[in-house]
Design a binder for these strands. Structure first.
Lengths: 261, 261
DNA sequence: TAGTGGTCTAGACCACATT
DNA sequence: ATGTGGTCTAGACCACTAG
């Protein structure tokens, strides 16, 4: 209503008015991306509070010297991330939440890497083997074809956490055992120019066999978390098939889901 | 090279040329969405095979009588779904994969609903209780505040599968026990106008207690899958906090991840 | 009735990959 | 050198929400 109103309630559209955005047209970074990053920073730092309205897109674009589609692209990318909400006839506002960014969708990267101090990895096996039926099906290679079999034991704080068994197409890359012990498999793939794009996962549980119990310092019959994963690169080709076993007493999967309408 | 070349290899850009797309400008359905749906159908039905090129966006737009941004919007939505891949200087092609659409990102909807025949649900408890500390923290209500506590036992084929304990803000909606037994909680929320938007999940495992074993027809100490979830609506407000226990012998989580660059 | 986001157009120039 | 997608502009009209 009144332009100079009660300050105890935010004046709609004013939250952004005070902020300054620095756009560099000479930068190779796209303008919409620069704007999106600065908006995201403003939200994370609290300059834009949950529920704040952004003000309409037309004003915003003229104020920033951008076209409306460019501003929309920036806003849309944050909507996709779950940081903003658009409502027709109402406006765009900062999402009303505690969980700003609890966890990336990750879980494709070795989750242990982020969970506390540096994990250690011991490579138990790293050799070429003929593909068994399940491996062949997952990797899309003929049964009996040449694949790399990798077995690793991962630990943090001197305690074993997981036993990881992975299979990869033999032609994909050379897996150096030494580097595998100092970094994650996915980091290695990435540095070899392989960009992961999607993965199909199955998470379950079962009781530890005697052998697993020995490897993981658990008692036989203890509850274990299991995960099977097939990962694909950006062309949709399978690049990795993993069968992992985690100590349930020391590990859990933790992630955020976004519903796509 | 030659325009009329070897037919054993697909002529780039020709895959789409033979397809017909029916766009209805009088429909309230957006044009980019109509196009996206028909492209997706063509991919799923195999009219567009993995690796096929779509042909450049300019030609496509003129052929369809659409502007390039509109065509791009359609293509982009399929890229986001993981069905198409764009490569600058190369073109857009159908993703090279077996996994067309193995599973939705779902898992927000009651997963059991899709897994085989109709599951049955028995509501064990459905009452208002004061919020405990963990519930209060998850739902963003004061400790001791009024919340609804829901306990359900779910079964398929006459066998128990999971014990579900959920907490919801008391003011959110009325939970009719009868309807809860005939449908899922999330369907109920949706029909009450609450649109879920995101969720934070933790999946782990542990051994069954005596009580859990009794409920789920397992032996004490059997491996169980556990899941904790806080779900948020499209404004970011928490609407549900669940603590679920699944029989590992009869259930596993199965989903697909998309890496967002 | 006014204001918002949702959709759409018809151009333009650039960066990159292939030939 | 050519062709591709990536980005950007400056408008337009529509559908929905609010007061």
């Amino acid at each position: 209503m009144a332009k100079t109103g009660d300050r105890s309630r935010a004046v709609p559209g004013s939250a952004l008015a005070l902020l300054h955005f620095a756009l560099d047209r000479t930068s190779p970074v796209p303008l919409y991306y620069q704007l999106a990053q600065q908006l995201e920073a403003a939200i994370e730092q609290g300059a834009l509070a949950p529920g704040d309205l952004l003000g309409n897109e037309i004003d915003l674009s003229t104020r920033l010297g951008l076209s409306r589609p460019t501003v929309r692209q920036a806003i849309q990318s944050l909507v996709d991330k779950g940081l903003l909400v658009r409502r027709r006839g109402v406006g765009t506002q900062v999402v009303h939440s505690q969980v700003k960014r609890p966890l990336e969708l990750s879980s494709l990267y070795d989750d242990l890497e982020a969970a506390g101090q540096g994990p250690t990895t011991r490579v138990v096996r790293n050799e070429h083997v003929p593909a068994t039926a399940d491996v062949a099906a997952a990797l899309g290679v003929p049964e009996g074809g040449d694949v790399v079999r990798l077995e690793r034991l991962r630990a943090t704080h001197g305690q074993p956490v997981a036993f990881l068994c992975n299979h990869l197409p033999a032609t994909l890359l050379d897996l150096d055992t030494e580097r595998l012990e100092s970094t994650g498999l996915y980091r290695l793939l990435r540095s070899a120019g392989i960009t992961l794009h999607s993965a199909r996962q199955t998470i379950g549980a079962r009781s530890a066999t005697a052998e697993e119990a020995g490897l993981l310092a658990e008692k036989e019959g203890a509850a274990l978390l299991t995960m099977q994963r097939t990962a694909y690169d950006d062309t949709g080709r399978p690049v990795e098939y993993g069968t992992h076993v985690y100590r349930a007493s020391r590990y859990a999967f933790d992630f955020q889901l976004l519903v796509r309408s």
